[in-house]
Deep mutational scan, measured.
Amino acid sequence: LQAFIKTLTGKTFTVEMEPSDTIENLKAKIQDKEGIPPDQQRLIFAGKQLEDGRTLSDYNIQKESTLHLVL
């Protein structure tokens, strides 16, 4: 599935991932794409901060969901 990552500066980019991917995997993909170390990334979806060990499906993240990236 493709999801949108929106930063506080208003920049939006897309990442490809599977519902079974962990938040940790997602942070690694963001690092590959944007060069931001995972330990500096905080991802917010539906008002909740996402925990590394959980999966996208745990948070009911669907295709074309928008996640907010806070540094």
Rank of each mutant, 00 (worst) to 15 (best):
A28C: 07
Q40M: 11
R42T: 14
L67R: 01
Q2S: 10
E51Y: 05
V70M: 12
S20C: 07
D39E: 14
K11T: 08
R54N: 10
I23T: 04
S65E: 09
T66F: 09
L50F: 02
Q41E: 00
L8A: 14
L71M: 11
G35E: 02
F45Y: 13
N25S: 12
L67F: 07
I61K: 04
Q41F: 14
L26V: 06
E18W: 13
T55K: 12
K11P: 05
Q62H: 10
F4L: 11
T12N: 06
T9E: 12
D32I: 14
Q2E: 07
L26K: 00
Q31S: 12
S20L: 09
L26R: 00
L56I: 12
D32C: 07
I44M: 10
L56D: 00
T9P: 04
S20G: 12
S57Y: 09
G53E: 09
I44P: 00
K6W: 06
I44H: 11
Q40T: 08
T9R: 10
V70I: 13
L71D: 07
I44W: 15
Q31E: 09
Q2K: 14
E18P: 03
K27H: 01
V15R: 00
K27I: 02
L1I: 15
E18D: 13
L71Y: 10
L56T: 03
S57F: 09
I30S: 00
K6T: 14
G35F: 04
L69P: 01
P19W: 14
T66W: 07
F45L: 09
N60Y: 07
S20D: 13
A28R: 14
Y59E: 02
K6Q: 11
E34V: 15
D39K: 10
L56M: 08
D39A: 12
G53T: 09
R42M: 13
D39L: 09
P19E: 10
Q62Y: 11
T7R: 07
Q62L: 12
T14A: 10
L1M: 10
H68F: 13
K27E: 00
I5R: 00
K33G: 04
N60D: 09
I5K: 00
E24S: 13
K11V: 08
F4W: 09
E51A: 07
I61R: 03
I23H: 01
P38V: 15
